[in-house]
Design a binder for these strands. Structure first.
Lengths: 220, 220
DNA sequence: CGGAGGATTGAAAGCAATCAAGCTCAGTGG
DNA sequence: CCACTGAGCTTGATTGCTTTCAATCCTCCG
């Protein structure tokens, strides 16, 4: 539903995997951690509602937001048995934990493996899409591309228009796009004065001109 | 061997998968394409020698180098049955093609699936590492991080030092790091005048001060 | 009412992009 | 053998955008 006008970022959903007894539902409050970098990875997590934020921090203290986990996404895929990012809830979030067992023995649980493979391949595609966002020339284009992503993933109907409830602040967006919070703020202000969006409050955006947004986001 | 001093970017190699009859070796000349974006994906490709370049092109013509495939890497993992990037040989390259069959039926070939899963998880980790490179503040830091990656993956002994034979030109590096060829050239010149590297020719770099390189690359 | 955190806006500085001019080197042909 | 050529690399000058630093606003909340 949330991707009625675009399927660029929609999960493929080719593999259904219904929760078995070992798949536990879990609720997280905003700010609560699900796992940390280098944690032993026993499960992956399917987002049911809310938004997760995956981050990595560098030695110099600079933080990078690697990706956000929206409803339908599966996060926490390990490398060498460990989580490769920190993960916390951006807003109140509900997830389903899937215990992953031995990834080198797909025959033990073929359905689980098919599910994990689909999740991994989706993840790769979304990470690749993220690169195109980071590589865009101007800050306004990056922000437009980001808003388009949000619109496709968590946009809500709002009269004749659609509305985005931002589940993250300006700093999170900045760390996701490789910019500063001030630049995010300025770009949003410009998009507003260009009448492409309107703000009901700093975290609530009405998309007034989806075509204009797309034009900016896709680079002409 | 090639990662004697660092394992940040080394493939986990947790899953061995010996070529079966359907795994064909294939040689590519520099510039030759292995696949294009949106091609139906029948195989993935394991790099034996040489270097592959994965790219995506935007509507406005801007090209992004998503990743390079070095020996040991597996490239061409599909999303929804299609390749998600263009792939061509940066230099003469030899690959092994692994036919992938149905990814939703791991029970058909568990060993192949374990191999593909390991490749996908490694890929995710490397893409995440790439983000940290793009997010670095200064062009010199990005270039240093890139050279460190190359040193770890394809560095060769060279007397007391180690040497990098660049398999790509300045434009490729620029499109990988989100910069311009001129900026790459300037950064390399600065690293040279800081005596961190020396150039034997534009495509042959001697790393004179690996510690200094790492310092710049890791952000203090 | 006052305080705090985030968002916005302003002014100045810093860095990369752009435009443009040489340079190097390999390949080519007189 | 050497001039010519072209592609890629380097360097210079200028422009433009983002960052930085700082001040103000706004809203929520004690």
């Amino acid at each position: 539903m949330y991707a009625a006008h675009s399927d660029d970022f929609r999960r493929s959903q080719t593999v259904a995997y219904k929760p078995a007894p070992e798949c536990l539902s879990r609720k997280l409050c905003a700010g609560q951690h699900l796992f940390y970098e280098s944690d032993r990875a026993l499960s992956v997590y399917e987002v049911v509602s809310g938004v997760l934020r995956m981050t990595r921090v560098q030695k110099d203290g600079r933080r990078h937001v690697i990706t956000f986990g929206f409803p339908g996404d599966v996060v926490g895929l390990p490398s060498e048995g460990m989580h490769t990012t920190e993960c916390e809830a951006a807003i109140d979030t509900e997830v389903i934990a899937h215990r992953i067992g031995r990834l080198d023995r797909p025959d033990r649980d073929p359905k689980l493996h098919a599910f994990l493979m689909a999740a991994a391949l989706d993840d790769i595609r979304m990470l690749q899409d993220h690169f195109l966002m980071l590589g865009r020339r101007l800050a306004d284009e990056k922000v437009a591309a980001f808003l388009k992503l949000l619109l496709d993933r968590i946009g809500q109907p709002h009269g004749a228009y659609r509305l985005i409830r931002l589940p993250m602040n300006r700093s999170d967006i900045a760390d996701y796009l490789g910019l500063t919070p001030e630049t995010i703020s300025r770009s949003i202000s410009r998009l507003r004065s260009d009448k492409i969006i309107a703000l009901k409050d700093p975290l609530t955006i009405v998309v007034r001109d989806p075509a204009g947004l797309r034009l900016l986001a896709d680079g002409e």
